[in-house]
């Protein structure tokens, strides 16, 4: 509750600053439109903006789902097999050396102008933080828990699988959760880059076209919807993770509240 109150306050303060800059600097509306003008566009052209927002949201969610599944699978594979560790891990790290921007045209070429290329882009950008966070969690299981489990579980492959399922994966979930939070924060970047490079719909597409036609107020309106979308996604994921893992110590957004 405190969190959302503070967020609301911050947004109001930001709007006030924005209005003050507009009034004091006297910048023309095609450089910096006033908040009221953007709000007006937001109301009058809501149907267009929301239509594009729905597409971007679908891209982000599908990318988040795909990237998370692939990231979790890669982490499990790397953890499980020496072959995967020696071949997949370097590949995962190398994949981060290539800027996603540079890949965008190729992905559009391969997957077309529709949803698929944006989903691939978002999934690609999410894959790394999810893999690394989950793998880290899997590797750092409390040794005391493992010792205890080994005295209880059957020997061999069956026991190792039971320990993975009952101890190591649940123990790694908080780390997986932090990876997922990062993923939720960066997923919109992937989708919007994909839309910029080649698309026929989505908020990124709308912004690009509004910019070309000097409809700066529409561009700002689309941007604010995109920001709202990204924030909603982040806080929804955060709330979901807390609900699912009440034992997890992950509280970094509330920490200042508890400490001060």
């Amino acid at each position: 509750m405190m969190m959302s109150a503070r967020l609301g306050g911050a947004i109001l303060a930001l709007l006030a600053c924005w209005q003050a800059v507009v009034l004091l600097s006297g910048l023309p509306p095609y450089i910096l439109p006033a908040p009221a003008a953007v709000g007006h566009v937001l109301m009058t052209r809501a149907d267009i903006i929301l239509g594009h927002a729905a597409i971007t949201a679908a891209e982000i969610l599908a990318g988040l789902l795909l990237g998370t599944l692939l990231g979790a699978a890669a982490a499990l594979a790397i953890d499980h097999a020496r072959l995967a560790r020696t071949w997949l891990l370097p590949l995962v790290i190398a994949s981060q050396a290539i800027p996603v921007f540079a890949l965008a045209p190729i992905l559009v070429l391969w997957f077309g102008y529709g949803l698929a290329s944006k989903v691939a882009m978002a999934a690609l950008i999410i894959f790394f933080p999810v893999t690394v966070a989950f793998l880290d969690g899997l590797r750092r299981t409390d040794t005391g828990w493992l010792d205890l489990a080994r005295t209880m579980a059957p020997a061999g492959r069956r026991g190792r699988f039971a320990i993975l399922l009952r101890i190591r994966i649940p123990a790694a979930l908080p780390a997986f959760g932090s990876g997922l939070r990062v993923a939720a924060a960066v997923a919109p970047i992937g989708a919007v880059i994909g839309e910029w490079v080649g698309s026929s719909a989505g908020l990124g597409h709308l912004m690009l076209h509004a910019n070309g036609r000097m409809q700066i107020d529409l561009m700002f309106a689309a941007l604010s919807v995109l920001a709202a979308l990204a924030l909603t996604l982040y806080f929804a994921i955060d709330a979901l993770l807390r609900r699912l893992m009440p034992w997890a110590p992950e509280r970094f957004l509330d920490q200042s509240e508890e400490e001060t």
Binding site: D142, G144, W145, D147, T151, W247
Partner: peptide, 15 residues
């Protein structure tokens, strides 16, 4: 399979 082990720390799983 015939030995039970109890540690100084309780080793309870928090979930």
């Amino acid at each position: 399979g015939r030995i039970a082990w109890m540690d100084q720390r309780d080793q309870l799983l928090p979930w």
